[in-house]
Design a protein around this nucleic acid. Structure first.
Lengths: 202, 202
DNA sequence: GCCATAATATATCTGTTAGATATATAGTCC
DNA sequence: GGACTATATATCTAACAGATATATTATGGC
């Protein structure tokens, strides 16, 4: 199994977030999905369709293994209506994760539908473009609210100062991106008002 | 065939860029791929694997059709070593494109590997996080250079003022995003220096 | 003129992913 | 006890990333 995957056709990325979350403690597939949604969901999406098969593969490869920890009965009975299958990281898994973390990251492949619609907007009237810009503002503001809430919960989530710093770094990124998007949208609406009366239909 | 696809599982997005490019004039599959790469590549990726099957489907649906324009012999002979199969938009295709453009856009699904590595960086030493931040700066600067070049070529590309405005809007977006990324990276490296001496390995 | 090479252009392949659907297990309530 | 509901596991299928394969044509050398 090769550590470097930079030359390959798109390869499985799901396993890294699984490994990263298991590095913080034993978890089931469902736990991983919840952890992704609750802490990294705003910059990394992941679904059951990827998590379960990836965990199965990771187990087959010896990077994670079923956990011998007792299935907790839970203080709150209503949090567990079905027995969990817990997994933990193996030493090999830990090494694998760290090696991947140290490699350069692969830049995202862009596919921004908002910009695609803006790009072709000269075909339509200015009201439609305005609606797209307004949508962009609303989304930026909604994202900023989510990030603010996450930031406020940070201290309780991560007592470790280093982990907190890096988590906060991701939040800060999201906030800057949201701000840039909102500014851009406002700028463009202003420019639209000043220059474009009613773009002619081709 | 339904115009609104907002409630569906991910549906084919390739066809919209195909339709949009054909709205500017007849083109072959290869022409579409080149046009995507040259004018929208920085915010919309598209490969042959999607373009050809989508064009085939669009033709089957009557939204595009083979073009009766004479296969141009080209002024420059070396630009055509194989006969092109040109397609053009049908009136139905044009209506379909315009209806889609007027709908709210679907927000991007995020999957930012840089942030994922940053998120788990407390496991490693600070030099590795610094390398990721430096990579982010270099990428932002490279993107800004590409966008600057595109901006300079704009006047020659699009004589129509409306089309030019919207194209420039997409470029402006990319520039703001690149700037935000660079600022963030510098900020985080600064914070790393001041707070984190050597993050402990867990 | 023939053949090899190279460039343009068309087409397909396969692993990953988005997001939906299906199923299993257990607790609660009437 | 059975219906309902919540947690948890698992699978499905269309879309996509990016690679590979193939077809067609022009060019150059002998």
């Amino acid at each position: 199994m090769t550590i470097s995957e930079s030359g390959d056709r798109r390869s499985n990325r799901t396993r890294y977030i699984v490994l990263g979350i298991l590095a913080r403690g034993p978890a089931s597939g469902y736990d991983v999905a919840c952890a992704v949604r609750d802490s990294t969901g705003y910059f990394w999406s992941e679904g059951f369709g990827q998590i379960y098969p990836s965990m199965k593969q990771l187990a087959a490869e010896g990077l994670i293994r079923p956990c011998n920890a007792p299935v907790q009965p839970n203080g709150k009975a209503k949090e567990s209506r079905r027995r969990k299958t817990l997994f933990e990281l193996t030493p090999e898994g830990e090494k694998f994760l760290d090696a991947w973390l140290a490699e350069p990251y692969q830049p995202a492949v862009e596919r921004n539908e908002m910009l695609l619609k803006i790009f072709f907007s000269a075909r339509l009237n200015a009201d439609i473009a305005t609606r797209h810009f307004m949508q962009a503002i609303q989304e930026a503001q909604a994202a900023a609210r989510v990030l603010t809430t996450l930031e406020e919960e940070l201290v309780a989530r991560l007592p470790d100062p280093a982990a907190r710093f890096f988590y906060e770094a991701t939040i800060r990124y999201g906030q800057k991106a949201a701000q840039a998007q909102e500014e851009w949208s406002r700028e463009m609406m202003q420019g639209l008002k000043g220059v474009i009366k009613s773009p002619k239909r081709q």
